[in-house]
Write a protein that binds this DNA or RNA. Structure first.
Lengths: 366, 366
DNA sequence: TTGTATGCGTTATCAG
DNA sequence: CTGATAACGCATACAA
């Protein structure tokens, strides 16, 4: 139970060696003899030696830590998708001996927070979450010259920094095509905040798919907000009880989709009999397995799926690699989302296909 | 655009002062003249001086950081309730200039992780999440002599360490009483993992309330698992389609409650007409406002409510206070959950009150 | 009110 | 292969 802190000096004294040799032995330098190394390692374990992080950091100039700045949403909310990202990244950090630093910042105030933790030497690299379409954080971090990886990206084909992103545009095109192949023509979009690049791209995909079949996107059934449950509920309520309701809903996350289902149930409707629902599924673990599996093992929601946890893992790997090789080129990965057919999509209801008074028919079912 | 790192020495040189004076001026020591202090502060800002965290930490022995070890659940999942805790705690950390360190650990492996970040001097204090009924982490941290605060607690009236907890026992007694006052006699419990103290206490409250009215708890309608959506779905499915189904469900979190609602809808049932549902609501922001508010501003779920975000805030405050006053006594706070009546509870359905074949009647409604 | 000297616990440079 | 010794950047006891 030796609770007294044992430092390098004491360890070296106990071994009758110099601090230098002990340090080298512990850090795997090749020039130390294997017998000495074994002795040192054994003694270090026995005496419970742990190198001081701040001393090491001061001496090397490396913090062995990575910073994450998470933005307070409009509801002073931390994006719940973040837990799953964290699970993926944290696993990698643990494996490579990196610390994870977390700071909150109000939307727009991230730069100060980044600057602070970087210039005080607390981190060797940072992750950018939720990039906007034209995000000041990217030029800012580039000017600082610190390694960073963006979860998502900004403009078209950005090459000046590292990022990992889902092909959101194509994912929503495919989703829309899938619904139109089933006969749907009027499809609502319940999107995330379109200042965010991922949501902007999703809207683009949605619009492109519609227009490719000669359908003009209708702003009356397109929404853009923080992806939370009540939002899905309100949006679904609005379009399903409005005039000319859509026969299908394209929803940007499982969270608002749950709200959509609540609205659907409250209106006495059923999916997919009355309305089809297609979701972008980030594989949130607390809604897993299979984004709410049904008894037969088929996922509940039909979805475009891409694991945010895997993204966290890969981004952490990339960032650590980048920290290790300062001169390296930026790297990019564009992932394709997978279409998974569940229970919430089906062919356009017959009543819908017949007349244009479908709104009334929907409402009358209550 | 001075990107070169300016340290205390350079700043002092630029000012024609000694490092000592500059340091004292910046750290608010009283003995420095106000004119000097103003000069120093101005120059520090102008030259973009930020003290090195590792140097300060090495010199003072304080890390100005707080460690959180989050446990991987059975599904290799990070508890989504954590984002809201984080939102509360992070706000306080930001205010007091503390860093938040996050590490993942497999269930049971937390001690090594705590030991590592503590003995390497990365943190000044730690938070314990999700304490078990007899949690080895508490004696372990006490033996280390590091400030820590537990979110929850372990045995009866523990006094040897600081904690903040909800009165889970009473909350579930009240919930159960509320349902029984409505006429319900057969109430299912969809609980969290009862190795965890909070869930254990909830079960105690549930059982005590039942027994106080002469009802023997029935293990056939009591569940204990990770509080995720599919769990709620499965449990609800099982009891509602089984023989002798309950007329009310007591659910430990909004997450499984969403799964419960999915099962209820799939069975063609309605709440509260066919079945009452009462939830413990942690005020998760991504399900806010009002745990899924309905149009009239009344919350959707009837719930026992206590904000996990507020808990995060208060725990952070307590811990920082404790770090500042080493000799202090442990502090405890026991919060009462609030009963909020929503739309998912109602009197016992008539059919239930009449016969004992209610299971059949439920099923036949499909 | 300001300055000098020293220590914090490592790693890194340079000799041996 | 090993060992003195000097940084790293700040805080602080002690002097002036």
């Amino acid at each position: 139970m030796s609770r007294e802190t044992v430092n390098l000096r004491k360890l070296a004294e106990a071994l009758g060696l110099s601090q230098t040799t002990v340090s080298r032995a512990l850090n795997g330098f090749p020039e130390v003899s294997e017998v000495t190394r074994a002795r040192v390692i054994e003694a270090a374990r026995r005496l419970n030696y742990r190198p001081s992080a701040s001393a090491a950091s001061l001496a090397t100039g490396k913090a062995r830590a990575i910073g994450h700045v998470v933005t307070f949403g409009d509801h002073m909310m931390v994006n719940p998708h973040f837990t799953d990202f964290l699970a993926g990244a944290g696993e990698v950090y643990a494996r490579f001996g990196y610390e994870m630093l977390l700071r909150l910042a109000p939307a727009g105030g991230e730069e100060d927070v980044y600057r602070d933790m970087i210039s005080r030497g607390r981190v060797d690299g940072v992750v950018v979450h939720g990039p906007l379409t034209d995000d000041p954080r990217i030029p800012f971090l580039r000017s600082l010259g610190i390694p960073f990886v963006v979860h998502g990206r900004c403009g078209e084909d950005p090459a000046g920094y590292s990022w990992i992103d889902v092909n959101n545009r194509r994912a929503f095109m495919r989703a829309c095509d899938f619904l139109m192949d089933l006969g749907h023509r009027r499809i609502a979009l319940i999107n995330g905040i379109e200042r965010m690049n991922f949501a902007d791209r999703r809207r683009q995909g949605y619009e492109a798919a519609l227009m490719a079949r000669g359908i003009r996107p209708d702003p009356a059934i397109m929404f853009s907000e923080d992806m939370v449950e009540p939002y899905g509920y309100r949006a679904a309520m609005e379009v399903l009880t409005g005039r000319d309701p859509p026969s299908a809903l394209l929803v940007s996350s499982v969270l608002p989709a749950i709200g959509v289902m609540r609205a659907v149930a409250e209106l006495g409707l059923r999916a997919p009999a009355d309305v089809s629902i297609l979701v972008f599924d980030d594989c949130l673990s607390f809604l897993q397995p299979g984004s709410a599996a049904t008894p037969r093992g088929i996922p509940f929601f039909t979805a475009m799926r891409s694991s945010i946890r895997l993204a966290g893992r890969r981004i952490a790997e990339l960032l650590i690699e980048q920290i290790g090789t300062p001169g390296g080129e930026p790297k990019h990965e564009l992932w394709e989302a997978e279409l998974v057919v569940g229970h919430t999509t089906g062919p356009l209801p017959v009543t819908e296909a017949v007349g244009s008074v479908s709104g009334q028919s929907l409402k009358s079912r209550r």
